[in-house]
């Protein structure tokens, strides 16, 4: 079974046909997806601002990072399941959109980056030195998340 066939199978499975028949289910899921976006935005900014020397700086970085990452995971737990449902509604449309694959790739990369390199660098942000590296990590994180968000906006256009 090719990827396209899989997309077609998902999109035309009885459950998804049923879901698309509802006039309000897709808009409601898309709205909840945006709630996730807001929570992710706040959690990502807290740490990236700190790495840039801005935002909340009065506490140990490790405390800020742990709390922000806990909320980042909560945001992801809202955005990813709703995102999967949105994809399943029109799987074959997204299959053909380059930007969908760009978004997906950027998301995988930013998640790996966030919970490995960024996590380590942010936890050590209180130690002297490495300012340049911290800035670089923050900018890479912001650039990747922007790509994910713009990809998301772009694939929604008719």
């Amino acid at each position: 079974m090719s990827l396209l066939e899989l997309c077609r199978w998902i999109q035309y499975s009885p459950l998804l046909v049923e879901m698309r028949a509802s006039p309000w289910l897709f808009p409601v899921i898309a709205t909840v997806h945006l709630f996730g976006l807001a929570v992710i935005g706040g959690a990502v900014l807290l740490v990236d601002l700190r790495l840039l020397g801005l935002g909340i700086r009065g506490q140990p970085a490790a405390y800020l990072v742990r709390d922000a990452e806990r909320w980042l995971i909560r945001g992801l737990m809202i955005a990813i399941p709703t995102g999967v449902l949105l994809f399943m509604c029109f799987a074959t449309k997204y299959y053909y959109l380059t930007f969908f694959w760009v978004k997906l790739a950027a998301l995988v990369v930013v998640l790996l980056f966030t919970f490995s390199i960024r996590h380590r660098v942010a936890l050590a942000a209180d130690q002297d030195g490495g300012r340049g590296r911290q800035r670089m990590v923050a900018m890479v994180s912001l650039a990747l998340w922007t790509t994910v968000a713009m990809g998301g906006r772009y694939i929604g256009f008719p």
């Binding site: 929570v39 935005g41 900014l45 909340i56």
Partner: peptide, 23 residues
Amino acid sequence: VLTLTVFVGTAVVVDLRLLGAML
């Protein structure tokens, strides 16, 4: 739409702090 992440994102952090749920 994308400025939502900055505006509502930071507003959510502030509200969660005021609720005693974050930071």
